[in-house]
Amino acid sequence: MHIVKQLMAIPGVIAAGEFAYRGDRFSYEGALTAEFARMASILCRSNTMSVNMQSEIFDSFAENCGCRPVQGWIVRGGQATVCNIGNYFAFIENRPELLNDVMTIMRAKVGDIGDDLLVSLYARIGGDVKEALY
């Protein structure tokens, strides 16, 4: 089953979606309008790029410290949480054990994110991005 559909089958998941690392496409299911899903995709892609940049800095100080490549991030709100693994995101309610369940499923289904993520994220900058980054 597709990851987004699998996430949406869990009670308490408000919405889930997928965005292209290039930033030009997205898809989603759940309680979002298309415009809000577009905004959520931009927000998630931007945060993913930011934490990956930060992990590059950590790694430059302590190589192989275990952070890089970043797999995702979580923002925990008062009653809702946003989870992002790779190019998938989920908006969930704060219910007991739901965050752990969603993160377990996302990590298992999306798989380990590789070093090529940054190249994909920066692809629109142009030029030899791979050489510039590595």
């Binding site: 930060q54 925990r76 693994i85």
Partner: peptide, 12 residues
């Protein structure tokens, strides 16, 4: 439901 934020996590 998002504010006030309870925290942030980076998943390495």
């Amino acid at each position: 439901g998002f504010e006030p934020l309870q925290g942030f996590s980076i998943v390495g």
